[in-house]
Design a protein around this nucleic acid. Sequence first.
DNA 1: GTCTATAGCGCGATAGAC
DNA 2: GTCTATCGCGCTATAGAC
Lengths: 194, 194
Amino acid sequence: MARKQGSHAEITGPKVRQAALRLFARHGFAAVSMRQIAAEVGVQAGALYLYTPDKQTLLFDLMRDHMEELLSDWQVPEGCAKLALEAFTRHHIRFHLARPELVFIAYMELRNLEPRNFAVIEGLRKAYEDQLESILKRGVATGRFAVPDTKLATLAIIAMLTGVTTWYREGGRLDRDAVEGIYWDMVRKAVAVE
Amino acid sequence: MARKQGSHAEITGPKVRQAALRLFARHGFAAVSMRQIAAEVGVQAGALYLYTPDKQTLLFDLMRDHMEELLSDWQVPEGCAKLALEAFTRHHIRFHLARPELVFIAYMELRNLEPRNFAVIEGLRKAYEDQLESILKRGVATGRFAVPDTKLATLAIIAMLTGVTTWYREGGRLDRDAVEGIYWDMVRKAVAVE
DNA sequence: GTCTATAGCGCGATAGAC
DNA sequence: GTCTATCGCGCTATAGAC
């Protein structure tokens, strides 16, 4: 397919999303201007509107794609609930450490979504929580786990695991495998039958 | 002390802080304008500057006062590490559930602080984390707790407990005491010697 | 596809009347 | 202590040249 001089749509589109991702994560959606994003990409502000209808959609697309990838990347293992819980724990940490900026945005910018967009993201988030809760329920039903309230335990575990993104830094004291192991140890014990 | 007609400094000052608290928590610091705050208080935008030098200070004062109260409200119990950990857990949940808006702001608006203000808040946050870590270290030293890494466990526990503010609603399925008990059960088991 | 220019608006903060 | 008025600026989004 022929390409006009100065035409870089295939490159510039992703670069716009990438720049928005970095700046939203660093400064927050409301604090970032379209001019800043354009400067990061290396185009004029007006040119951004070739790649997104508006600033809100830029945010929503980042969050929706992130949540959909989180869900599609994960398959509940069938067998033993304990193995499923370990797989969930390790996958959650791996997935979140691999894309800290998206995680941060998906967590912090919910209130900047328009109501319709918010509902979509909340639905995806709920679906993800249900994955963990079903594992906990399974373990409780088979007597492998002891949790007083599966819904609350689901939220507590996800909060604990997601917190890893607030302090983990590449090249720090612990590598990713070590972090996974330590968190799994705490999760395992927290739901254990005494 | 005589009061001029139309003078309401003793009332308006706190109302400004209160309005800023509500609006920052709901929409985020960067998304809230001084005009919105003024409208909430029932004065004109210019009048706000009688009570704060600028918008940044309004945010910083809310966060600093919150963190200082969090610290001053808490005294580490001397004796048994397990009792100290239970006291910390229950106090953390009680304190956070009692002021969800301040908690939300202290957590979400760190990146909107100027560097000097950020350093102050980070210092207070670190001091609070140290309270919990010292309890965990004490328990590990006396063989009451088994945690592979006290620093990581500190952050994991705080993340888990603070997460309660994201879902707890007054008048919901569980009251505050029940929530405290359930979280304490998970924390207790997570650090337990097997 | 990207540019320049700009419409139309809201912002934080200040000045000065009352 | 609060008001009105305003400065100077930056914002999102669009129009139209190239």
